[in-house]
Amino acid sequence: MSEKHLQTGDVLPPYSGKLRLFAMRFCPYAERSVLVLNAKNLQYDLVFINLDHKPEWIFNFSPKGTVPALEYEPGKAIFDSNIINFYLDEKYPDVALQSSDPLRRAQDKMFIETFAGAQSAYYTAAFNPQALQPSSVETYHKGLENLQKELEIRGTTFLHGDEPGWVDYTLWPFLERFEALPLIGKVEFAIDKTKYERLVTYMDAMKNVPAVKSYYLSAETHAKFIESHGKGDANYNMLDTSAVCCMRPRKKKE
């Protein structure tokens, strides 16, 4: 599949009959749904969207033009990564990604909420550095400390258990991007291996999970995208190396 991001004027590719996820290759929220689809071994198509120059038809699947959006039947879609992932986990239960214990499910959701501060700090550091405050760095490291503590309390390889689950796939896309921050000069956001030994072990384990490994991008690649975004011309297609792809639609005729 081409890594090309479709934009204004591009034609919607024909529906193949599979689940279809509209995403952006560098979006952590879209990656959440990609990882869940991968973990459940589902067949699906990916269509990447240029979020600066959105194709007109994306609004038929996502009212605000945001990603991810999941087309589950021709012309019918749901949006928001958590809504999509809860739907997928209930619709395709063979590979369950949530605990059977209602309390643990609630605890996982609460932990995701408490980690939101670290995610916001990342976005500020990466895409709005002028607004960066010392409190942002503190919030970021507090999130990392809480995650490390939670891993130690649970005593398992992953937060979900011996295998990763919804909570891990929800957190991972941000952890993957956190490693890019020192490469763009935000050294105060570095994940020190001495201080965060348990967390680094967890991250190394996640990188080797098949669902993650097939979609993983290096810190260097994320840093290049962040830098291109900062110059006012986000390079959405930096990974597209295919000259011809069956998924690439023709331009509308003038």
Score class of each variant (00 low, 15 high):
124 T>N: 05
23 A>D: 09
211 A>C: 05
20 R>L: 00
130 Q>L: 08
95 V>Q: 05
52 D>R: 10
96 A>H: 08
162 D>Y: 11
90 E>P: 01
175 L>M: 10
160 H>R: 10
58 I>L: 10
247 M>Q: 08
125 A>F: 01
83 I>V: 12
97 L>F: 04
129 P>R: 06
23 A>W: 01
165 G>W: 05
18 K>W: 03
169 Y>F: 15
46 L>I: 13
6 L>F: 06
47 V>L: 04
55 P>N: 03
136 S>C: 13
238 M>K: 10
119 Q>D: 00
120 S>V: 03
5 H>F: 04
133 Q>C: 14
44 Y>F: 09
214 S>C: 15
171 L>A: 14
45 D>I: 06
95 V>F: 10
199 L>T: 08
159 L>W: 01
37 L>R: 01
221 T>M: 06
74 P>L: 12
171 L>N: 14
166 W>P: 05
82 N>Q: 08
35 L>T: 06
106 A>P: 01
157 T>K: 13
62 S>H: 08
184 I>T: 12
19 L>R: 07
7 Q>N: 08
164 P>E: 04
146 N>S: 12
32 R>S: 02
241 T>I: 12
75 G>Y: 02
88 L>Q: 02
240 D>S: 13
115 F>A: 11
102 P>K: 15
38 N>V: 14
77 A>Y: 00
212 V>M: 02
175 L>A: 07
17 G>I: 15
42 L>A: 15
136 S>I: 06
12 L>R: 12
